[in-house]
Nucleic acid binder design. Sequence first.
DNA 1: CGAAAATTCAAACAAGTGTTTGAAACATAC
DNA 2: GTATGTTTCAAACACTTGTTTGAATTTTCG
Lengths: 228, 228
Amino acid sequence: MASTKDKILNAAERLFAEHGFAETSLRMITTKADVNLASVNYHFGSKKTLIQAVFERFMDRFSAGLSDELDKLDASDSSLEVIDVLSTLTRPIILLDELRPDGAGVFMNLLGRAYAETQGHIRRFAMERYSDISKRFSMLLQATSPTMQPSEMFWRLHFMLGSFIFTLAGHKALQEISESDFDQKLTIEQIIQRLVPFMSAAFSFDSNLPNNHFTDSSPNRLSSLAGE
Amino acid sequence: MASTKDKILNAAERLFAEHGFAETSLRMITTKADVNLASVNYHFGSKKTLIQAVFERFMDRFSAGLSDELDKLDASDSSLEVIDVLSTLTRPIILLDELRPDGAGVFMNLLGRAYAETQGHIRRFAMERYSDISKRFSMLLQATSPTMQPSEMFWRLHFMLGSFIFTLAGHKALQEISESDFDQKLTIEQIIQRLVPFMSAAFSFDSNLPNNHFTDSSPNRLSSLAGE
DNA sequence: CGAAAATTCAAACAAGTGTTTGAAACATAC
DNA sequence: GTATGTTTCAAACACTTGTTTGAATTTTCG
């Protein structure tokens, strides 16, 4: 029998992912968890800190998994390629999905909502708590492309982050469309296995290459707003 | 002097983008707009339809701008490259930014929040109302890569969508980090001009190529969860 | 002008919110 | 077994929410 605390966390994480933080009331949570209303404030203090606790439980799992993968990468002596670094994300995500039904989707949904919080008490909390692992990941990525400017790498990293969070948070809807339109329903792992090579190709693009095809800014290409 | 209706829309769109739909009360909106509380229900019927109206105003602008760009593309007789199609997104987004302060950021923020809505009354509304323009865009993209499977293209398109929405919705926070860490604050346009070539390179990656570097699945690469 | 329609307004409504309270029930340890 | 600390519970609290009402005001137009 799960403890009251865990029952609350289990119910809360599903409801938060499904309806959002503000749209989920403590009464919805305690009803689903089959515990007394007051127990939330007793065990967690407030709704705000409950949200943090839900987030923390996922994030700890994920960052531990990612840390393991990065360890493996450090241990291997083969030269690092972009895809090797990006691939370290796969397993930690899949592990969440095995932890509980649609764990990865729930986690990414929470991540996306946390990021949307402009005032962002979660954001600040995550920043300081998981800065180590994120720095480590970004260092390794930088090592694959020594000539790339760190600022360019910074932006690319967030471009990628957007793809991951957005796609996996909404994977259920996307899976449905994919199934009805193409008769193929990808699993989370299959989605990631498409996403990783796709993003690796993007990262491998060298914007410093002169006369590069992708940075050709002849009138018909790119924005050229000025020319109108 | 703006009409009451417009004053409400103007106040609402900023507050929605800043705090989210649920976290923004009608009283916050009417206070900021300096109109009577009841006028929201009088002019828009309900909060739900107000949200739709705010969204619609942006989306109409954007899709009209995108439509123009796609027209230009149809008119040009040069062979289409991926970057030509992706570049059509730039101008419509920048135009929103010129329409009102941080228009692009506000719009992307709304888009992101609308997508997060799992139950999604906005999502359904957008699906049927803007299916034409989205189909047109995706057709043109498909034309640049005739050999690519439509299902693969579908997923890539949503990977890209995630990058755009996520990055531009949170661009303010990212700009701040970029400024403090690299002493360079990019404009929205500059962000897009990094994003478009980056994504174009990703789209140009051919996953059907045999023995491709990026799909090499030797033990150290990709997930290989089975092997544990 | 003056009747009709459209709009604004202050006030109230019912419903739902997070949180607090103090007694009851339970568990733990001496 | 009794005392101590922990946890649960029903009830109430103070407050905010979106929406409605009906009268007052403004605008429209013949």
